[in-house]
């Protein structure tokens, strides 16, 4: 498991639902086929309303047209990130686009679970609201061991919540590897 994650922030608001993260019209791509899976990166966050896309200014595309990868590595969210549909395509789409971690105040449980059990990305929780503090494009560094995120652009450091009892699943890389380690699976 990487313990230092660095890259640009992409800032979203509250109640970002999985229909916004990956709109239903793209769910006909089969994530099990590599040639189709990459399209989830292309359309990640394409359902976010324009004025909410990349706060505070908005109107900042998450992925440039006709590209599969985003310039951003870390998504910042507010409350209830990943609510709505159980589609695992949501954390998968963010990961395909290159996102390694989301930092939100808290998560809708299915998104949180999918992110961890599928080993797509780290759903981290902030100890304070960061949506108005971090700006889209700011350079961040997450130090997991120290439980902190540093905004290198604005020279500010914020505490993260401890990962808690899902840490063994995160460290294993997902629920399958965790179950193997625990002797549940051969």
């Amino acid at each position: 498991m990487e313990t230092i994650i660095t890259g640009k922030a992409y800032v979203l608001g509250d109640n970002i639902d999985t229909d916004q993260i990956i709109p239903a019209q793209y769910l006909s791509f089969n994530p099990s086929l590599p040639e189709e899976r990459k399209f989830f990166g292309m359309y990640a966050n394409s359902g976010v309303p324009e004025n909410q896309a990349g706060l505070p200014q908005g109107k900042t595309p998450f992925v440039r047209p006709n590209e599969f990868k985003s310039d951003y590595t870390i998504v910042i969210g507010g409350k209830n990130f990943g609510c709505g549909s159980s589609r695992e395509h949501a954390p998968l789409a963010l990961a395909e686009a290159g996102i390694k971690a989301v930092i939100a105040e808290f998560y809708a449980r299915i998104f949180f679970r999918n992110s961890i059990n599928g080993g797509y990305l780290l759903p981290l929780e902030s100890t304070q609201r960061l949506v108005e503090k971090i700006r889209t494009g700011d350079e961040l560094e997450i130090d997991l061991k120290a439980g902190k995120v540093t905004n290198k652009t604005q020279k500010q450091t914020y505490q993260l919540q401890p990962v808690g009892d899902v840490l063994p699943i995160i460290e294993a890389g997902g629920v399958f590897d965790y179950a193997k380690k625990a002797g549940m699976l051969k």
Partner: peptide, 12 residues
Amino acid sequence: VGNTDAAFTLGT
């Protein structure tokens, strides 16, 4: 649940 959870349950 998501796909990974469902796949895990399918097998176990």
